[in-house]
C-alpha cells in the first residue's frame, strides 16, 4: 500500500478517503493539491425527513402469504371455528326460534361472513382438488385460502367448482361461478339465478 514516493501516498489517501469523485475532478484536484485545501468532512449535517409511504397492495399480500405459511397448524384455528358457529347460530335463530325457513337460510348464508367456516370441495375442474376439506382463513375475489387437515395451506379458485358447508342440520352448496365478489362488497350486491341449499 505505502510507496516510498511522498506524492503517490497523498494521491492514494485522497482517492480512498474522499467519497464520490469522478476521474476528471480527481485529476484537477491532484494538480493543485498544494495550493487548495480539500474538505474531508461531509458537508451535510442533520437528517433529511422522509415522508412515510403506505405499503402497496402487492406488498401487503406478500406479507400475508409469508405470515400464513409460518403457522399452518389445523389445531391452532380451533377457537375461530367455535366463534364462527356461535355467530351463525346468532344470525339464524332470530328471537328464540328453533326451526329455520329455507328461504331465510338462503339469504343468511349469502350475506354472512365465511371466515372460519368448515368447507369441502364437491366438484371442480381440477380433479386433485376434490374432496379437500378445511377452514377458510382469508377470502378474496377469486380465491379461498384454506387450512387443511394435513396442516397445509391451499389456495382454491372459486371458478368452475362447487363447495359445500355443513352446519348442524343444514347442508349448503355454493356455486363458485356466481360467487366471485369481494367479501366486503357481497352485502350490497344482488344475485340472479342463484340456488344455495
Amino acid at each position: 500500500m505505502e510507496e516510498p514516493k511522498g506524492l503517490s501516498f497523498v494521491e492514494q489517501f485522497v482517492k480512498e478517503k474522499v467519497p464520490d469523485l469522478s476521474e476528471k475532478k480527481l485529476e484537477k484536484q491532484l494538480v493543485n493539491l498544494y495550493q487548495k485545501p480539500i474538505l474531508l468532512l461531509c458537508e451535510k449535517s442533520g437528517k433529511v425527513k422522509k415522508k412515510k409511504q403506505k405499503k402497496s397492495l402487492r406488498q401487503c399480500k406478500a406479507d400475508l402469504k409469508r405470515a400464513l405459511t409460518q403457522n399452518s397448524n389445523y389445531a391452532e384455528y380451533e377457537p375461530l371455528r367455535k366463534m364462527w358457529s356461535e355467530y351463525i347460530r346468532e344470525v339464524l335463530y332470530v328471537g328464540g326460534k328453533k326451526q329455520v325457513d329455507m328461504k331465510m337460510a338462503q339469504e343468511v348464508f349469502l350475506k354472512a361472513d365465511l371466515h372460519g367456516a368448515v368447507i369441502s370441495v364437491v366438484l371442480s375442474n381440477c380433479k386433485h382438488l376434490e374432496k379437500t376439506k378445511g377452514t377458510i382463513i382469508t377470502e378474496s375475489k377469486n380465491m379461498f385460502q384454506i387450512v387443511t387437515l394435513k396442516n397445509t395451506i391451499r389456495n382454491i379458485p372459486k371458478k368452475n367448482s362447487v363447495f359445500e358447508i355443513i352446519f348442524e342440520n343444514l347442508r349448503v352448496t355454493i356455486f363458485g361461478d356466481q360467487f366471485c365478489i369481494k367479501p366486503s362488497q357481497r352485502l350490497t350486491k344482488k344475485f340472479k339465478n342463484y340456488i344455495p341449499v
Partner: peptide, 16 residues
Amino acid sequence: QAAHFAISMQPMNKEL
C-alpha cells in the same frame, strides 16, 4: 373478534 383472535395466536399473527 376475529382480529382479536389472530393477535392471541402463538406466535402472534399480525398480518392476519
